[in-house]
Design a protein around this nucleic acid. Structure first.
Ligand SMILES: NC(=O)c1ccc[n+]([C@@H]2O[C@H](COP(=O)([O-])OP(=O)(O)OC[C@H]3O[C@@H](n4cnc5c(N)ncnc54)[C@H](O)[C@@H]3O)[C@@H](O)[C@H]2O)c1
Ligand SMILES: NC(=O)c1ccc[n+]([C@@H]2O[C@H](COP(=O)([O-])OP(=O)(O)OC[C@H]3O[C@@H](n4cnc5c(N)ncnc54)[C@H](O)[C@@H]3O)[C@@H](O)[C@H]2O)c1
Lengths: 206, 206
DNA sequence: GACACAATGTGAAATAATTCACAAATATGA
DNA sequence: TCATATTTGTGAATTATTTCACATTGTGTC
């Protein structure tokens, strides 16, 4: 079922999910690919193509059942079961992310946060007990954590990534502007905020 | 020169820039598309194709001049001149972004930060004087600010975006999980961190 | 139940991005 | 100077993604 599904499709699925969630609260029962597409300013055929990867989810004549489709997408994306994550580097950005409620809404539970500074570990930050980075293997194993959010300074990024991989982390959401070099088995996704801003400004007014 | 350049190309240009910057510090004089590509784990032909949008920047036999290419990319991307930006919503995320040095390294100067809370405006946050959101038109005009980073709560996102557009903002980097509806003239780029994490986890181990 | 309308699902076509592959230019070294 | 090696720049081929277009199925009304 998850063979060769384009990344873009997965991302749009989440956008559909958010709207379906909202529509359900409004009491909507059915929605057509056209209406959903218009809300997102995309083509209706795109919506249908995306959903068609996962079976025949709609009904000709009346469209998609909002509740059923929302739950189907939740299931496809694994929103219906919790995934444990940790944050590594509890500075400005790490602390902000720890406070973000949007992760939990998609099934991500922040289980542990780490830092290497004595000012931080041993204390509570945004409600989370902060652990010493050197304890990471133990805590990751005890809590079945597969995903790490990396928000350490750029200089420490590569060495910390290696620690994460050794500790058993399978995927890293990397906020540092550093190209991490790890084994192919560890999935890395880069969030490069300066790059986003530069791209925006490049195309501004075009 | 900026006609029909793929967004992906612009983004890679910035990655090239960062490496060239670094290579220059190491004293490198020349670099081939192959070496640059290997550093980024992409194809050498991709590097050459990207650069070819902007002229014939290399030299057959010896590759690209590191300094000249870095400066050319800086010029293409406008890193060589400063762009003023503001941050709107100085909560967890807005404050973290205000502290980020990576924006300035690409030519973005945070000129003003805004909030609607009396606890915040009138005070200094991360070294920036925080202004009342209702003063935004005046301050944006006085300081020639064209780009806003939007980090207000989701509920306030759409109304705030409208304020920004009215105040003369031309581009918005939107961190809220809300699809903003504005006129076509305002360029919007969405940074959806929950979506990034979900995409990563979906493809984890695949 | 028949007719008009709505909306899906999906091959085929169009568009976009990446990769190939090679001629042309430059560099190196005997 | 010449032969060999390197490396670019770029059309052509390939691959990925989006959009089209329409047969098919379901809905609603008289
Ligand atoms: N602040 C932002 O808004 C922002 C935006 C984009 C990218 N980033 C990137 O995110 C990273 C963090 O930025 P920040 O502003 O939060 O920095 P910061 O200095 O505020 O925080 C970094 C934290 O990491 C901890 N740390 C340092 N070395 C460590 C190690 N080896 N192991 C574990 N923890 C360690 C520090 O004690 C500190 O708490 C940087 O790489 C930065 O480039 C930040
Ligand atoms: N915290 C994160 O790491 C994170 C991650 C991804 C996305 N986001 C999104 O970013 C936004 C901000 O998140 P946050 O955690 O910083 O929230 P926050 O509540 O800490 O901060 C929001 C700030 O906006 C101010 N504000 C509220 N209404 C305003 C208005 N009308 N005009 C101007 N300012 C206003 C508030 O006073 C507050 O200071 C949210 O939409 C959230 O979904 C946050």
């Amino acid at each position: 079922m998850r063979k060769g599904i384009p990344e873009k499709t997965v991302q749009r699925l989440l956008l559909y999910y958010r709207y379906l969630f909202f529509l359900l609260q409004q009491g909507a029962k059915n929605i057509s690919s056209k209406s959903l597409a218009d809300l997102l300013e995309i083509k209706d055929s795109q919506v249908r193509k995306d959903l068609s990867y996962f079976g025949q989810l709609g009904k000709r004549g009346s469209g998609y059942d909002v509740l059923a489709l929302r739950d189907k997408i939740a299931n496809i994306l694994g929103i219906d079961k919790e995934t444990n994550v940790c944050i590594v580097g509890m500075g400005n950005l790490g602390s902000a992310l720890a406070a973000y409620k949007g992760f939990l809404a998609l099934g991500f539970r922040i289980i542990a946060v780490f830092d290497n500074s004595k000012q931080k570990f041993g204390h509570k930050i945004k409600g989370y007990q902060c652990y010493d980075i050197n304890q990471i293997s133990k805590i990751i194993e005890e809590n079945d954590i597969k995903i790490a959010i990396l928000t350490v300074p750029a200089e420490a990024a590569q060495e910390t990534a290696i620690k994460l991989e050794k500790a058993g982390i399978k995927a890293i959401l990397n906020f540092t502007p550093v190209k991490l070099s790890l084994s192919k088995r560890t999935k890395i996704s880069n969030v490069d905020l300066a790059l986003e801003l530069k791209t925006l400004s490049f195309f501004m007014g075009k």
